[in-house]
Design a protein around this nucleic acid. Structure first.
Length: 411
RNA sequence: GCCAGGGUGGGGUAGUUGGUUAUCCUAGGGGACUGUGGAUCCCCCGACCCGGGUUCGAGUCUCGGCCCUGGCCCCA
C-alpha cells in the first residue's frame, strides 16, 4: 500500500477543525492589529532563498528543475517571498505595510515531534517602518497571537548589536560563527573556537554578556551601543504594556538577514522542538535587487503550537440528524434545508436505513434528531428528539429550528 | 546525516524456552427488524512493516531496509 511521504501528515476532520479554530483566532488577532492576509507561491526560484536564508536552510530545501530548465525550490519559509512580493507588486502602497500570512513550508529534515517536512507557519511582516514603536508593535502582536492560541510560552528578546559590539573587529563571516556558538550556548565550543582563532581575550566578556538580563548590564559589558536609545525605548514600551519577556543577549537567529532586535518564543511544555516563534528586524529587499526597506516580522510554528495544545477538544459542533420514513422523505428534505439555512450541520439518511438504524447512526455524531414520517409530513410538523436527554416532542418547523439553535453547543 | 527505543486487523491489545487455524475489545459492513431498535441477536470483513538468513517449523531468533517515537544537529 502506498504510504504518505515521510515527515508529512494526514489530517482527519476532528484535527482539521481544531487547526482551523486556532488559525481563525490568530487571523482575527492579526486583523484587529491591521495586518491583512497575503499569499505567495509555494515554490519560487531557488535564488530567492539562497540569497540570504542561511546555510542550514539551503541544505535542507526541496529543489527541483522545472520543465523549462529553471531551478526552483519549495519554500522553506515565507518572509523572503513576501519581500519579493512587496518589491514586485506593492512598492507604491503607502507605508507602513502590515501583512500576515498562513501557509505551508517544506524542509527536508529528520522528522520528530514538532518537526515535519511539510509544516505550517503563521507569520506577520511589518514593512517600511523603522522605529522603536514598530519593533514594539510586532512583539506585542506576537504576544497576542500566541495568547489567542492558548499555548503557555515564554518570550525572549535580544539584539544582534549586543554580540556585534564585542565582535566589531572581526569579519562578518567569523562573527557569524562565534554568534552561532553563543546562540547554542555551547560554552566548550566557543572557548575552543576562540582559542584556535587567537581571540581568547573575548571569552570572558562574551560569557558575561550571556548572563545579562537588563540593558544596563549589557552596556556594562559591551560599552556604547549604537542602537541603545532605540532599544531602551522599545523595551520600555513593552514594559509599560506589560508584555512579559526576558532579555536574552544570546539570541542570534538562524536566518542571516536579521539586523536589529530579535526575539523567540518557546512553548513551556515541549521538548527539544520547543521554539514556536522566531523573528526580528531585518533588511532583505536589497538582496533581490530592490530599494532596501526596513522591515520586521516573525513566524509562528503552527504545528508546534498544535502539539503544545494537545488533543484538547474544541467546542463540539451542534449536529442534527434528519430521520425519516419513505412517506416522509419530501418533507424531511425540506426540514433539512430549513436547519441548514439556520447554519446547522444537518445530515440526512442516504443509506435507505429504517428509523431505528438511522437513529443509531445519528447518535454517533448528532445531539438532535428530527423524526419525519407520514404523520409529520401530513401535519407539516417535526418530531424533535434530544438524544442526550432522550426527550422528544412534536413542534412546528420554525420552533424546532429555534430549539436547536438556542440549545448551545454540547457534548 | 548521527544515536537510542519501537512496529501484530482501522484503533487498542494477547501471544510462554521457536510448535495446530494468531487472542480479546472496539470500530466498520451485512442480516433479522418498516415510527424510537442510541437496543438485542446472528453473520462477515480485517493484522504479524518489507526483504534476506538460521530452522523440519519464525509473530517469536538473526541481518539489511522502510517507517514511527525520542535525542543530537538545524530550525518554526
Amino acid at each position: 500500500m502506498i504510504q504518505k511521504p515521510r515527515g508529512t501528515r494526514d489530517f482527519l476532520p476532528d484535527e482539521m477543525e481544531r487547526r482551523r479554530a486556532v488559525e481563525k483566532r490568530m487571523r482575527d488577532v492579526a486583523r484587529c492589529w491591521g495586518y491583512r492576509e497575503v499569499c505567495t507561491p509555494e515554490f519560487e526560484e531557488l535564488e530567492l532563498f539562497t540569497a540570504r536564508s542561511g546555510q542550514g536552510i539551503i541544505e535542507e530545501m526541496y529543489v527541483f528543475e522545472d520543465k523549462g530548465g529553471r531551478m526552483m525550490a519549495l519554500r522553506p519559509e515565507i518572509t523572503a517571498a513576501v519581500q519579493r512580493m512587496y518589491l514586485n507588486e506593492a512598492r507604491v502602497i503607502p507605508k507602513p505595510l502590515r501583512w500576515c500570512y498562513f501557509g505551508d513550508c517544506f524542509r527536508y529534515e529528520r522528522p520528530q515531534k514538532g518537526r515535519y517536512r511539510q509544516f505550517w507557519q503563521f507569520g506577520v511582516e511589518l514593512i517600511g517602518a523603522d522605529t522603536p514603536v514598530a519593533d514594539a508593535e510586532v512583539i506585542m502582536l506576537a504576544r497576542d497571537l500566541l495568547e489567542s492560541s492558548g499555548v503557555s510560552f515564554t518570550l525572549h528578546i535580544g539584539h544582534l548589536d549586543f554580540m556585534k559590539a564585542l565582535l566589531s573587529d572581526m569579519d562578518p563571516k567569523e562573527q557569524r560563527i562565534v554568534m552561532r556558538y553563543l546562540d547554542k550556548k555551547d560554552d566548550a565550543g566557543l572557548k575552543g573556537h576562540l582559542a584556535v582563532t587567537g581571540r581568547s581575550d573575548l571569552y570572558t566578556s562574551l560569557t558575561a554578556l550571556l548572563e545579562c538580563r537588563s540593558l544596563d548590564e549589557v552596556t556594562e559589558v559591551t560599552g556604547e551601543l549604537p542602537d541603545y536609545k532605540r532599544t531602551e525605548e522599545t523595551l520600555g514600551l513593552l514594559d509599560e504594556m506589560e508584555v512579559p519577556y526576558s532579555l536574552d543577549p544570546g539570541i542570534a537567529r538562524g536566518l542571516d538577514y536579521y539586523t536589529g532586535i530579535v526575539f523567540e518564543a518557546f512553548a513551556d511544555n515541549l521538548g527539544a522542538e520547543n521554539q514556536i516563534l522566531g523573528g526580528g528586524a531585518y533588511r532583505l529587499a536589497h538582496l533581490f535587487g530592490g530599494d532596501d526597506v526596513p522591515s520586521s516580522g516573525f513566524a509562528i510554528g503552527f504545528d508546534r503550537v498544535m502539539v503544545s495544545l494537545g488533543d484538547t477538544a474544541g467546542e463540539a459542533e451542534r449536529v442534527v440528524g434528519i430521520v425519516y420514513t419513505q412517506e416522509g422523505r419530501t418533507h424531511a428534505l425540506r426540514v433539512a434545508r430549513a436547519f441548514r439555512e439556520a447554519g446547522l450541520r444537518t445530515e440526512t439518511d442516504i443509506m435507505g436505513r429504517n428509523i431505528g438504524a438511522q437513529i443509531t447512526h445519528a447518535s454517533k455524531s448528532a445531539q438532535f434528531v428530527a423524526i419525519i414520517g407520514k404523520r409529520e409530513q401530513e401535519s407539516g410538523t417535526v418530531t424533535l428528539k434530544d438524544l442526550i436527554s432522550g426527550e422528544q416532542h412534536e413542534l412546528d418547523l420554525p420552533s424546532a429550528v429555534r430549539e436547536v439553535v438556542t440549545s448551545g453547543p454540547r457534548g
